[in-house]
Design a protein around this nucleic acid. Structure first.
Length: 668
DNA sequence: AGCACGCCGACT
DNA sequence: GTCGGCGTGCTC
C-alpha cells in the first residue's frame, strides 16, 4: 500500500488553526515545508503557508493541494519565529502574521523571468568610494561603538539620540557600509513622508546598484522584483517605510529605524504591529545590529536606554557647529495688539524678515477656516451627521466640512434647534490665518500648504521648489511642513497655537507636542543667517513648552516619565485597547458591558492583576455612521494578552465588531 | 475573512 | 405570500 503524505497549511485569515491537505502524487517528491501553497478552501482557492508535513490527516474530508508557489523554502526559522511572536503580541493568527511578512499578494507575475543570482558577499564591491564625508568626533565615536557590535555579532541595539542636523544620516550610512563589507544586508526604515527623492539619490549614489526602494506606489511587478532581488542577494539594502522591516534577507546585518518616535511606525490595520518592537525582535533573531535614531526619542526607547537594554549614543552638536534657534514663548493671556490671531511679537518678527528679504514658516495644526460653528442664541454646535466631530467652516466654498468623512453641507441660514439666524464661527484654521496674514502684510507673498491645497499631485513638490527659489516669503501650513524641509533663508518659525495639541485628552499629548515643536523649530536657523522660533500659547509655564524653549530633551523626559510612572502609563504599564464598532448604539453598549463583565470575572477567577478602564464611548463616538466604544486594559503585557485571548476570542460579539489594539498609539 | 444557511419584519 | 435584513457557523 502506498503511504500518503499530508501537510499543515496556515491561511491568511483570522482563524488561528492550521488546515490539512493531501500532497497529490505528481508533487510527492517536492519539498513542501515552508513554502507558499495554493489550496482549495470552501468554494475558492487561497494561498497560504505550508508549515510542516504530517503523517495522518487531522480531518476526514481532506482535499489535495492545488499548487506550489515558491521554488524554494522562503519561510526561514527566524521569520517563522517572528511570525509566532507577532501572532501572540498583536493578537492575530499565525497566517495573518506570515502574510504581513510574506504577502500572498507577492506572487510571481505571469511573465516573470528568473535572473542570475548575484555573487554574494563580495566585500566593498558595491560601495562607491566617492562622496563619503569625514565624520566629526561624536559621529566617529558612535560609529566605532556600532562597528564593534557588528564584529561581536550579539544582536546589540542602539538608540542614536542626536539633535536636528547633528549628522545621524552619515552615521547610519557608514554603519550600513560596514555591514555590507562583512557580506551582510541592511534594512533602512523611514516614516513614509521622509522617503524623498533627495534622500533616495544620496543612498543610491553611496551604494550603487544594490538599494531596493520599497514604497506604496510600486506596481505589483516592481514589488515582486525588488522582493525577489532581496531574497537572492541582488538587493542588499532595503529602504522603505514600516513594511520594509520584512525584507527577506537571509544574512541581515543591520536595521536602521530613523525618526523612531514617529507614530506612523505603528500599523493601524490588522496585524496592528509596532515596527520599532518588531525591529528589536528581528535584530535579536538575526543577530543584527539595530539603530533607533531620533532627536526626540519615544519615552519607550529612551527608558530602554536608561535601563541598559539598548545602548545610548549621543550626537549633542549640530554638524555645522551652529547654535539651535532661539525659542520665544509668547503668552497669549497678555494683551492683543492688531490681531486676534498673531501676537505683536509674531507680527513684528514677520515684518522684520520681510524687510530683510528672508523667509518664514508659520505652523498651525488645523486646516480649514474655522473649526467650530455655533448658534449665538442657544449655543448649538454643528456636528457631522455621521461622525461625532464638529464641522469645519471652509471659506472658499462657504461650506461646512467633516474632516473624518467626506461629508460637506451648506452654511446654515438658521439654527435648526432654535431658529435663530445668529450663527457664528469660532476657532482658527489655516485658511483664517492665511487671510489674517494677507490683511496684515499685503506686500508679503504667502502660500498655504495643507491637505486641502496639497491634494492635487505635485503640489507638495512644487511648493518645496518654489519656496526654495524664493518665489514667496511665507509658507503657512499644517503637520506636513514640519518635517524634512530644509531652506537656508528661513529665519523665522511661528507656531500659532501650541495649546490644542498639548491639551488633547490623551496620555501621549505632551510627548507629541514636544516632538512637533522640536521638529518645526528645526526648520529655521539652518544657515549663517540664524533663526528665531515664536510659539504662541496660553500656558507658557507648562514643562513641555519650557523644555522645547531650551531644546532640552532630557528635562522634558524627566518630567514626563515621572507622570507616566505616577499614572501607570507606558512604558511602566502597557495598554491594550478593545475597540467595538456597530451601527446599533444600544447593542454596542450591551456588548461592551458584557465583554467588560467577562474580563472582570476572568481577572477574579484567574487571580490576575490588570486594570479595566471602561467600557466607555470612544472620544469620537461615531465615525462614518458607526458607533464606537472601547475598553482599555492596563497592566503587564502578558496579563493583558492572556486576558484578551480568553475574553475576546471571536471577532464579533452581540452584533459588534471587535478589534484589539495592543500598545495603542493614542487612546482617542 | 467570505460565504451559506436560517429565521423574523415590510413589501409587490 | 416572498424579498431581504444580519446573526451564526464553517471552511481541510
Amino acid at each position: 500500500m502506498i503511504t500518503e503524505k499530508f501537510i499543515e497549511v496556515v491561511l491568511p485569515l483570522p482563524i488561528d488553526k492550521p488546515f490539512h491537505y493531501r500532497i497529490p502524487k505528481y508533487l510527492e517528491n517536492r519539498d513542501f515545508t515552508r513554502v507558499r501553497v495554493t489550496v482549495p478552501f470552501g468554494r475558492k482557492n487561497l494561498t497560504g503557508y505550508s508549515i510542516k508535513a504530517v503523517e495522518t490527516p487531522g480531518f476526514p474530508q481532506i482535499k489535495d493541494i492545488h499548487s506550489i508557489v515558491d521554488e524554494n523554502r522562503i519561510v526561514t526559522d527566524e521569520l517563522l519565529e517572528l511570525a509566532g511572536w507577532m501572532s501572540r503580541n498583536y493578537v492575530c493568527s499565525l497566517g495573518e502574521a506570515l502574510n504581513a511578512i510574506f504577502p500572498v499578494s507577492l506572487l510571481p507575475p505571469k511573465r516573470f523571468e528568473a535572473q542570475p543570482r548575484a555573487a554574494e558577499g563580495v566585500p566593498g564591491a558595491v560601495i562607491s568610494s566617492s562622496a563619503w564625508p569625514a565624520l566629526k568626533v561624536h559621529q566617529a565615536a558612535a560609529l566605532d561603538r556600532i562597528s564593534e557590535a557588528l564584529e561581536t555579532n550579539a544582536g546589540e541595539s542602539f538608540l542614536l539620540h542626536g539633535v536636528t542636523s547633528s549628522g545621524k544620516t552619515e552615521v547610519y550610512l557608514s554603519a550600513i557600509k560596514k555591514a555590507l563589507e562583512k557580506g551582510r544586508s541592511a534594512i533602512f526604515l523611514l516614516p513614509e513622508i521622509s522617503l524623498t527623492p533627495q534622500f533616495i539619490d544620496i543612498i543610491q549614489s553611496r551604494f550603487p546598484g544594490v538599494v531596493g526602494i520599497w514604497h506604496s506606489k510600486l506596481t505589483k511587478t516592481q514589488r515582486y522584483d525588488i522582493w525577489r532581488k532581496a531574497l537572492d542577494g541582488r538587493v542588499k539594502i532595503m529602504l522603505g517605510a514600516r513594511s520594509a522591516i520584512f525584507a527577506p534577507f537571509k544574512r541581515l546585518g543591520i536595521i536602521v529605524v530613523d525618526e523612531e518616535h514617529e507614530p506612523s511606525y505603528k500599523q493601524e490595520t490588522r496585524p496592528a504591529y509596532q515596527t520599532r518592537d518588531l525591529a528589536l525582535k528581528r535584530a535579536k533573531l538575526s543577530k543584527a545590529v539595530l539603530i533607533l535614531g531620533s532627536a526626540t526619542p519615544s519615552l519607550e526607547s529612551f527608558t530602554m536606554s536608561k535601563a541598559g537594554e539598548i545602548k545610548l549614543l549621543e550626537l549633542p552638536e549640530r554638524i555645522d557647529g551652529r547654535p539651535l534657534p532661539r525659542v520665544k514663548l509668547v503668552d497669549l493671556k497678555l494683551k492683543w495688539a492688531r490681531s486676534k490671531i498673531l501676537s505683536a511679537e509674531l507680527i513684528s518678527a514677520i515684518t522684520k524678515i520681510l524687510a530683510k528679504r528672508e523667509q518664514a514658516i508659520i505652523f498651525l495644526n488645523r486646516r480649514g477656516f474655522s473649526p467650530g460653528i455655533m448658534c449665538a442664541q442657544c449655543s448649538e454646535v454643528w456636528q457631522c451627521p455621521s461622525c461625532s466631530v464638529s464641522l469645519v467652516y471652509h471659506k472658499h466654498d462657504t461650506r461646512l466640512a467633516c474632516h473624518y468623512c467626506n461629508h460637506t453641507q451648506a452654511w446654515p441660514a438658521k439654527c435648526p434647534s432654535c431658529g435663530s439666524d445668529n450663527v457664528s464661527i469660532f476657532g482658527v484654521g489655516t485658511q483664517k490665518v492665511e487671510e489674517e496674514i494677507k490683511r496684515l502684510f499685503p506686500q508679503g507673498r504667502i502660500f498655504r500648504l495643507d491637505r486641502d491645497t496639497a491634494s492635487k499631485k505635485g503640489v507638495y513638490e512644487k511648493t518645496y521648489q518654489d519656496f526654495k527659489a524664493e518665489e514667496f516669503d511665507i509658507l503657512l501650513g499644517t503637520q506636513m511642513i514640519a518635517k524634512g524641509f530644509d531652506f537656508p533663508r528661513v529665519t523665522l518659525v511661528g507656531v500659532i497655537d501650541a495649546d490644542t495639541a498639548l491639551y488633547q485628552p490623551d496620555f501621549r499629548s505632551p510627548e507629541r507636542t514636544f516632538q512637533l515643536l522640536t521638529q518645526v523649530s528645526g526648520r529655521c536657523g539652518r544657515s549663517e543667517l540664524g533663526g528665531e522660533v515664536i510659539i504662541q500659547t496660553k500656558r507658557a509655564e507648562h514643562y513641555t513648552l519650557q523644555a522645547a524653549k531650551s531644546h532640552d530633551y532630557k528635562v522634558f523626559y524627566d518630567q514626563e516619565i515621572a507622570l507616566r510612572r505616577q499614572m501607570g502609563y507606558p512604558p511602566f504599564k502597557r495598554l491594550a485597547n478593545i475597540k467595538l464598532r456597530s451601527k446599533n448604539e444600544e447593542k454596542l453598549k450591551l456588548a461592551a458591558e458584557e465583554i467588560s463583565a467577562k474580563l472582570i470575572k476572568y481577572r477574579q477567577d484567574q487571580k490576575k492583576e490588570f486594570e479595566i478602564l471602561g467600557p466607555t464611548p470612544s472620544a469620537r463616538t461615531k465615525i462614518q455612521g458607526m458607533f464606537r466604544w472601547q475598553i482599555l486594559l492596563k497592566g503587564e503585557i502578558d496579563a493583558l494578552l492572556d486576558a484578551v485571548n480568553a475574553c475576546c476570542e471571536s471577532k464579533t460579539f452581540g452584533g459588534a465588531q471587535i478589534t484589539i489594539d495592543v500598545d495603542p498609539q493614542s487612546t482617542l
